[in-house]
């Protein structure tokens, strides 16, 4: 169940004054069951890239494979792909339109042509997955808080039961509680149901906490593609392209420069605390011995 991009190029408005190469020679693979992150400065091509993953945008050249099949093949079931690779856009709550939350979530599976019973079963399940309580099901989406609206919108995608879930900045504009709720929920889906997740985010702290792999985009190209700790080693280069490593990375690097033997790959508070504790523990032991 993997998505693979081979030498993908994308040019906006080719042949006009606004012609712009948004993606250049992208070769990437998102393997089954991985929780991957995509980071990059605004305009780096992140959003254009993810729209290739479910065939919403067609590459100017190059190929995209889903489970080994070329999605640009003439008879490829594109509609099918879109329900298997669910894409949650930025500010998805702007797309809520039904009279109540439950009907809105039903919209996707209904369009898949499923029987009413199945549609409702899925909608119910999806709303549970995002942790939205039953008392909100019959409310107008406009009566919900920002975080709740966003969860309702994500449920609309989950109700299609996708194999891959792509989220474009799902926490933008939310408060810390709303942010943690949504990301924890997504992590749970990933762990319990093995759903493949691609998370686009500006927050290095969030990325470091949740993902197994980071793709760094810069000017339409893949700049880094590795495990988080490996990517954050390049924190100086990240800064040059308008990004940064998590704050703790800077702490660990600075401690190392002052001669303390701590793990410079720690990118979360828990990891850093453990490493510093063990350094001071060993230091005591050496002193005593």
């Amino acid at each position: 169940m993997s998505i693979k991009l081979e030498h993908v190029n994308y040019i906006y408005s080719p042949g006009t004054a606004y012609e712009k190469q948004a993606l250049t020679d992208i070769c990437l693979e998102f393997p089954d069951g991985q929780f991957a992150g995509i980071i990059g400065h605004t305009g780096s091509g992140k959003s254009t890239l993810i729209q290739h993953l479910n065939g919403l945008v067609r590459a100017t050249s190059g190929t995209v494979y889903y489970n080994g099949e070329d999605i640009y093949r003439e008879d490829y079931p594109m509609k099918d792909l879109r329900s298997r690779v669910g894409l949650v856009f930025q500010y998805p709550e702007y797309q809520l339109f039904e009279v109540d939350v439950f009907s809105d979530v039903c919209f996707g599976p209904k369009n898949l042509g499923l029987p009413k019973e199945e549609v409702e079963k899925r909608a119910y399940h999806a709303l549970q997955q995002v942790g939205l309580k039953e008392k909100y099901f019959k409310k107008s989406p406009f009566e919900l808080s920002g975080g709740q609206k966003r969860r309702a919108a994500i449920a609309g995608i989950l109700a299609m039961q996708p194999e891959v879930l792509i989220l474009d900045e799902p926490t933008a504009g939310l408060d810390p509680k709303g942010r943690d709720d949504i990301l924890d929920q997504i992590q749970l889906l990933h762990r319990e149901q093995g759903i493949t997740v691609v998370l686009v985010s500006h927050s290095m702290e969030d990325i470091a906490r949740y993902v197994e792999r980071i793709v760094v985009m810069d000017k339409g190209r893949v700049r880094f593609n590795d495990r988080p700790e490996k990517v954050f080693e390049h924190y100086r280069e990240l800064e040059q392209i308008g990004l940064a490593a998590p704050q703790v990375t800077y702490v660990m690097q600075a401690l190392r420069e002052r001669g303390m033997d701590v793990d410079i790959h720690a990118a979360t508070v828990e990891g850093a605390a453990a490493s510093i504790r063990s350094y001071f523990g060993n230091f005591e032991k050496r002193r005593e011995g």
Binding site: D180, P246, Q247, V248, V251, V269, A273, I276, R277
Partner: peptide, 14 residues
Amino acid sequence: RLDVPQVTMLAYEL
């Protein structure tokens, strides 16, 4: 459930 800066949190844990 409010945030604190990551370094503040790390210092607190230590």
